[in-house]
Nucleic acid binder design. Structure first.
Lengths: 161, 161
DNA sequence: GTCTAATATTTGGAAGTTAAAGTAAATCCC
DNA sequence: GGGATTTACTTTAACTTCCAAATATTAGAC
């Protein structure tokens, strides 16, 4: 019925470089699925006024013992550039969902702390994410595990994890 | 040896909401692998002065019969927003890799045409991509096909393809 | 105790993405 | 034909990412 651009790309590649078509298709599939899931998740989160990046940052803070983490630590956990942490925390701070203060022990360090409003919001948003199974409600838990395993193969192949 | 943030996130989720942990982990894995692959590919393409988005646009034009496509058609094939096409084509045009002209048949339509310089560049860049197997050189063709199949399951589950 | 080097964060800039609004051109319809 | 609708693209604005450079502070070396 509907035309699939990924299938078409694979066809084009196969016609010219058949020995590389499978790798190309795998990369394209990763990119497309990421785009799809991100889009669905952002739609899901829109009622709460946060993006997925903000969701992950808040979630991480809410999980932490004191509701407080150094910016640098957050970057490591979220696996993003320090500048990205500054960016997302600044926006959350502007909305009163997080506060920011220099660490008393090391004044180079900035500690982000989730506020009660932030906690309330993240719990609501998490409930919505659960309802939608993180935009993967069409998959069984076993299928979800298969996805993770197969992608772990890629992560391992490039030295990540 | 090295701490894996994804494994840690899965652990946190399992402790609180074990029934949702697998779906969460799958989404996280998709996001992470996309980030890894994109990063590796952009590094690969850096010597050619183009990003992955630009690579895909040029590749698409080079595949086309006349080396020329309407912007709208490119957006469909690349599965991106029209504004993204405008964006990337503007940059390629600035570098002389593409020209832009209104269609003689329908003056609403803008045709992007790859230049000889654009063709030369995309062939070099493609050779580099082939050398690196699209940043998946650690995977066999069969493994790559497995990745595509598993991700196709997700695409199907959300009504894409 | 300085002086130097390393670390933590922010800032500014280039790219990408999307959504929404604006412009222009073609088509539909009466 | 003329008016309304649809289509194609661009623009603007918001947000994400990263990198590279600047700032500040701590730690190490002599």
């Amino acid at each position: 019925m509907s035309f699939d651009p990924l299938a078409e790309a694979h066809r084009q590649w196969s016609a010219r470089w058949p020995e590389h078509a499978d790798h190309m298709a795998a990369v394209t599939a990763v990119m497309r699925v990421q785009q799809l899931l991100l889009s669905r998740i952002e739609t899901l989160l829109k009622p709460y006024g946060i993006t997925f990046a903000a969701y992950e940052a808040l979630r991480l803070l809410a999980f932490s013992r004191e509701g407080r983490l150094p910016m640098g630590k957050m970057g490591e956990r979220l696996m993003v550039h320090p500048a990205s942490v500054t960016n997302v925390i600044s926006r959350l701070e502007g909305r009163g969902l997080v506060t920011r203060a220099p660490s008393p022990h090391d004044r180079r360090v900035v500690l982000a702390t989730i506020t009660p409003a932030g906690r309330a919001l993240i719990e609501e948003a998490t409930a919505a994410m659960h309802d939608a199974e993180f935009a993967l409600d069409g998959l069984s838990p076993a299928q979800a595990r298969t996805v993770t395993e197969v992608l772990h193969m890629i992560r391992a192949s490039v030295g990540d994890a």
